[in-house]
Simulated assay, not measured.
Amino acid sequence: MKRRTFLAGTILAGATLMSTLLPAVGGIATASAASLTKVTFIQEWPVADGFWIPWILGKEKGFYAQEGIDLDIVAPPTVADTMKFLGTGRANVAFTTVMDIIFAKEQGAPVEAIGRYGNGNNWGIISQQGKTYTVADLKGKSVGIYNDAWTKAQLALMLKSAGLTLNDVQMVTAADDTVPLLLQKRVDVITGITNAEGTEMTTTGKQKPEFLPAIAHGVPNTPIFMLAGNQDWLKANPELAKAFMRATVKSMAYAVNHPDEGVQAFATAYSKAYDPVYIKQQWADTVPLLKPADSKSLAQEAATWQSLLTAIKAEGIVKDPLPADQYFTNQYLP
């Protein structure tokens, strides 16, 4: 899942982003740095985005340090490197996508999901304000897409619900952002998620986009983003993994309940190298997807995974998926 790169000209090529972030004034007192255990947390995107606000704020508030963790938030050199870092043990845990986990497992990488981020699949078809479409209406229309397997699979499943195929639409591939295609009227609709492309339509396009949800038209309701762990590290450090998840659940709940603090923590971490209007709106669009932010909301179900695996196998994305329960575990949740 690609999204708008809103830090113009800023590529943090594998740099450790948070090692110099100081605790906020009034933050919770924490143990000395020497007594903390470093946990390397690789992200899904080379440039910081609003999805990271819970752990940015949680680190600032001292929630990870309270659990004995020195959280090292790291950006990958490219979007393709997140699972490489996790699978090879260069990172202990990751913020990633459900499809990246599936593809990594297909390659034999020792990774598994340890918690979901969001309560469902918020991907779909986005159009300009006032221009609504049904799936059947898409026949003959131009659709801005990203050139990844899951985007095409979701679109194929949606079209199938109306008796259409990918050949019934004109797909226009975006290099890194579908939104300009729509705003410049180069396509009729685009694919995307509510808290990325949808957010950009609001902030850049100055309009409320129309949204046709994929889950209402044959696409599994599987959260797009996941927290994942290196299985070797998890087995060797079960208590540390549980501590990481306790701090993360606490951080997510606090960030959801204190959105302004979350946005401010992001601003503190990244100074002026970000789009404040976009981040504020993106977090506002993300918060409803995380509620209620508690341990139960991060728990995963085999049935949900199975629906996704069945769909992608039918589309030929994965030839021989593993049993659903081999992709995830809930044992580290508080």
Rank of each mutant, 00 (worst) to 15 (best):
F63Q: 08
I215M: 11
T40P: 02
I42M: 08
I215H: 00
P276Y: 15
D100Q: 14
L212F: 03
I317T: 01
E106F: 05
L57T: 03
D176Q: 15
L322R: 06
V169F: 06
K250I: 00
M171A: 08
P223S: 02
V179R: 12
F266L: 01
L289A: 10
E44P: 02
K250S: 06
T203Y: 08
N230I: 01
F63W: 04
Y278I: 15
P220N: 06
Y146M: 15
T40H: 03
L7W: 10
S271E: 13
I126S: 05
A247I: 03
A75S: 13
A113S: 04
I193P: 00
F6I: 13
F266P: 02
D275M: 12
R4E: 14
K59Y: 03
G144D: 14
G316E: 03
R3Y: 11
A247L: 06
T151G: 12
F103I: 14
Y332F: 15
Q300M: 09
T37A: 08
A284W: 00
Y133P: 10
A174W: 07
D168L: 08
T248C: 03
Y274E: 10
D285R: 01
V189P: 01
L298D: 00
P46S: 00
Q281T: 15
W55D: 06
I125C: 03
E197C: 01
Q300Y: 01
I145H: 10
F211K: 00
P110D: 13
T88I: 07
A314V: 01
W123C: 01
G115T: 09
W123S: 09
A314T: 02
N257C: 02
A29T: 14
Q207W: 07
S32C: 07
V189R: 07
P76L: 05
P54R: 07
E301F: 04
T178E: 05
K139P: 04
E210P: 03
G108K: 08
L227H: 10
A8P: 00
Q264A: 15
N237P: 04
T202V: 15
Q331W: 07
Y133I: 10
A269N: 07
A80R: 13
W45Y: 09
Y117L: 08
A15Y: 09
N92V: 05
T97V: 09
T286L: 13
A273R: 14
L138I: 14
P323C: 07
F51H: 06
A29Q: 13
K84H: 09
D81T: 11
K280L: 13
L164P: 04
P220C: 06
A284T: 15
T82F: 08
T5A: 10
K185R: 14
A302W: 00
Q282C: 02
Y133C: 11
L289D: 05
T134G: 04
E197G: 02
Q184K: 15
T248R: 01
A80G: 07
